[in-house]
Amino acid sequence: MSAVTGLSFRDSGKLGLLLLISPLLLWLSLFILLPHVDLVMISLRERVAAREYAFSWSNYTAFFTEPLYWRTFMRTAVMSILATALTLLIAFPVAFYIAKMVRGRFKALLFVLCLIPFWVSELVRTYGWMILLRETGIFSGLLQWLGWVDQPVEMLYNDVAIMVGLVYTSMLFMVVPLVTTLEGLDDSLIEAAYDLGGSHFRVIWDVVIPHAMPGIVSGCIVVFMLTLGNYLTPTLLGGKDSLWFTEQIYTQFITRFNWEQGSAFGMLLLILSSFIVWAGLKLSRQSFTRVMT
C-alpha cells in the first residue's frame, strides 16, 4: 500500500508540503499560541503609572488573598466535577439502551432524537429552563394545580437550577461518545460473561465499563471543559449570586477594564482545565489524540 501510494501523493514534493503547512502554522501561532503567550505576559504585569508596566505576581497573589476569588474558583471546579459525574450517570443507561437494546431504524431514530436539542442554541435551551423553573413558570403552576403548594414557588436562581441547566446542556457530549464505544462491544462478550456466572453488577463493572472507557473519558473531558467554561447557564439560571468563575473573568475584562487581573484569572482557569484533562487521561491511560478524535 505505502509503496504504491508513494508514487502518487505521499511525496508530492517539498513545495506541496510547504503550501499546506504554512496556513496551519499561521493559524496555530496567530490564533492559539501567541494570544496565550500574551495572556501569560499580561497576567504577570502591574500598572505602575499611566501606560507603564512592571513585572509582578500581584494579580496571582490577589487571587489567593481575596476569599471571594478563590472560593468562586473552587466552587466552579467542584460544581463542574459534580455536573460531569451526574451527566455520566444519567447518560450511561440511555447510551447503553441505544447501543445495545434497540436495532435498525428505531435505534437511528433514538440517536437522532438525542442530537436534535443540540442543534438549537444553548441560549434557547436555557431560556426553556427559565420558563419551566421561574415563579410564574410551568413547574410552579403544575405544583399549585396539583394542590401540593398554595403559592407560586421560585425554582430559578439557585444551585440546583444551575446544575439542571449544566447537565442538560452537556448531555449530547456524553451520549455520543458513549454510544459510539458501546456499539463496538460485541454482544457475545456480555453473553459469555453471563454464561460464566457473572452477576449484572460484575458484567457491567468488569466487561461493559472497561470497554466503554475511551468513550467515558472523552465524554467526561469535554463535558467538564464545557461546564467549567460555561457563562450563559450559570448567569441566567443562577442569577446574581451564581458565582461562576467565568463571570469573574468577564467582570475584570469588560466591567472593570482590569485586563491584568482578568488575564491572571484566565490563566488559572486554563491551568485547572488542562490539569483535569491531563489527570483524566493519565488515570484512564488514554492518549489525548485518541480521545479527541
Binding site: P35, M225, L226, L228, G229, I249, G262, G266, L269, L270
Partner: peptide, 9 residues
Amino acid sequence: VIPGVILGV
C-alpha cells in the same frame, strides 16, 4: 480543550 471565554479574551 480551551474554554471559549479564555480563547476570546
